[in-house]
Amino acid sequence: MKDVVEAEKGEIFDIELDVNILEANRKLANENKELLQKNGVQAIDVMGAIGSGKTSLIEKLVQNLKGKYRMAAFKGDLTTTIDAELIARHGVEVIPINTGKECHLDANLVKKALKRINLEGIDLLFIENVGNLICPAEFPLGSDKRIVVVSITEGPYMVVKHPFIFMDADVVVINKLDLAQAMGVDVKKLENDAKTINPKVKVVATNCRSGEGIINVINALEL
């Protein structure tokens, strides 16, 4: 902040500031990242619209990686803990994070949740973000990698309509591959759209019900 001369009584007083509101979250996210790294935990943030298949994807990843990693999951949800129960069925510790009326997880909520698990006991942490494609991008949580899940049922314009979320992604999962034909959606085109926006992003098509493509997601995440 610039040095200011004290004003006389009744004077209008102009104050230059540089207070970045989103900065506090970014700082906390960095602290989370450091804490995770110190404990040798890799964290993966899963974003995507409601119903795109975030929970199904995490379940399939957990099933496939069970023997290889010790895992836990955070589940951000507006009101329910149904998803948390689903993931817990696979013997993985799930911490539900209730965001109340907020539309996204933030680094502070994740920080609190990190206190509730034994970080030394896990290697891999999945963080299912609230089903919302716009808000979470501005609120990094401290994860190492970010997955954006889009589903075929969201239609052919899905990617080009929300280009900026894909700029922050490491892996894009195009889910519900089994419905592509019925929906008349060109999967290759969606894939190219994501690549146009972010040339470095890895794109994988999946069917999270059958498990098709899950192995490619694991490879893309380098797990």
Binding site: F13, D14, D18, I21, L22, E138, M167, K200
Partner: peptide
């Protein structure tokens, strides 16, 4: 929009456009 550099084709970094900053304010004492 693309992260491809319009000049050389490499991948660029986002530098600006993410601010949410209080720049200044006027106070009455």
């Amino acid at each position: 929009p693309t992260l491809r550099c319009p000049n050389c084709g490499e991948t660029v970094e986002i530098e600006g456009g993410r601010e949410c900053t209080i720049r200044d304010m006027k106070l009455l004492i």
